[in-house]
Design a protein around this nucleic acid. Structure first.
Length: 317
DNA sequence: GAAATTTGACCTAG
DNA sequence: CTAGGTCAAATTTC
């Protein structure tokens, strides 16, 4: 099945519109960051950064989706069971089930196609996820964690799997299944990682990491997986590579994140009591960013951020 | 006490 | 048959 040129044009227009919006927000954020005091505008820097993330995430979603991008739309994806009624099956003293619950046929295993993979230094993507499982994977050094949307019981069927990359364990490979049917209003409040200015900056990096350096560093890529056997969709693939190559010019990864410059003397700029990094990998990633934020924002090459705005001038063929 | 996470068992696609 | 995806009770966190 081929995509109509009209559909493609619509996608492009949507992508451009969202990217332009992202540019505007980025400019606002830059203005904020260039001032030492916080909250001198109506919108906080955290919120702006989060908006940027969402704009770019939506765009990437549009650009990477296959045709209708409907995922497993049909017969209820096997997870439609209600978790409420659970026949108690455990003896109160022994840690063994007295009687096995009859769950045969209660769900279908998900197909491996119709997924979208991303690679990012952070697990967070702006949505609220709830972990429901973890598995050690054969020939994989790190376990795979399973998440579903917090709003599952409001009908949102989005799930994702997160695992560290074997050769690059500071990065997480996230595989998304299904689309969020929850609205913006239902998304996670910006009180978790979103509220960290540094983490928000990390989102910018995350965006960059998803779309660039595809050849030089296979980890830094955004991969749409139509399943290995499937033929690549030429139309969308070429559009994606056009956009990628355009954005590669900005070379933001190196400009924004001087990871090598990790310096322990740089302190976080937010209250550490209210937030703590619960695992060292995030710590490593973020501490690289401390050096950006500590000596005012001068260390941060804002030109790189400007270049996000050049997306606006990108010409589709 | 509610929400989130952990973890072993259950279940199915390949 | 096995690897991997999901469930759900127990446990932890807030």
């Amino acid at each position: 099945m081929r995509i109509s040129s009209e559909t493609l044009r619509t996608k492009r227009e949507r992508s451009i519109a969202v990217l332009v919006k992202g540019k505007e927000i980025a400019v606002q954020l830059q203005t904020l960051l260039n001032r030492p005091l916080r909250n001198n505008g109506v919108v906080s820097a955290e919120e702006l950064a989060s908006q940027i993330l969402r704009s770019f995430t939506e765009t990437l979603s549009v650009l990477s989706s296959n045709e209708t991008s409907q995922i497993d739309g049909g017969d209820g994806d096997g997870d439609g069971r209600d978790s409420g009624a659970s026949a108690s099956s455990w003896n109160s003293h022994e840690k063994k089930p007295v009687k096995v619950k009859d769950r045969r046929g209660c769900y279908k295993r998900r197909r491996t196609s119709d997924s979208t993979k991303t690679v990012s230094p952070t697990m967070d993507d702006g949505y609220a996820w709830r972990k429901y499982g973890q598995k050690n994977i054969l020939n994989s050094e790190y376990p795979r964690c399973y998440y579903r949307c917090t709003h599952k019981y409001e009908g949102c069927k989005a799930t994702k799997q997160v695992e560290k990359i074997k050769n690059d364990p500071i990065l997480y490979q996230t595989t998304y299944f299904g689309n969020h049917s929850c609205t913006n209003a239902m998304r996670a409040p910006l009180t978790t990682v979103d509220s960290d200015p540094v983490e928000s900056l990390n989102y910018l990096v995350t965006f960059e990491s998803k779309i660039t350096l595809n050849q030089d560093h296979p980890s830094y890529s955004m991969i749409n997986t139509p399943s290995a056997k499937e033929e690549p969709k030429q139309d969308t693939q070429s559009d994606m590579s056009d956009l990628k190559s355009s954005l590669e010019d900005s070379n933001l990864w190196q400009k924004i994140v001087p990871m090598e410059q990790k310096s322990s003397e740089c302190a976080p700029v937010w209250d550490p009591k209210t937030r703590s990094y619960d695992h060292d990998l995030d710590q490593e990633v973020v501490s690289g960013l401390y050096s950006c934020t500590s000596n005012s924002m001068d260390d941060l090459d804002m030109e790189g951020i400007y270049q996000f705005g050049d997306i606006e001038n990108f010409q589709f063929d």
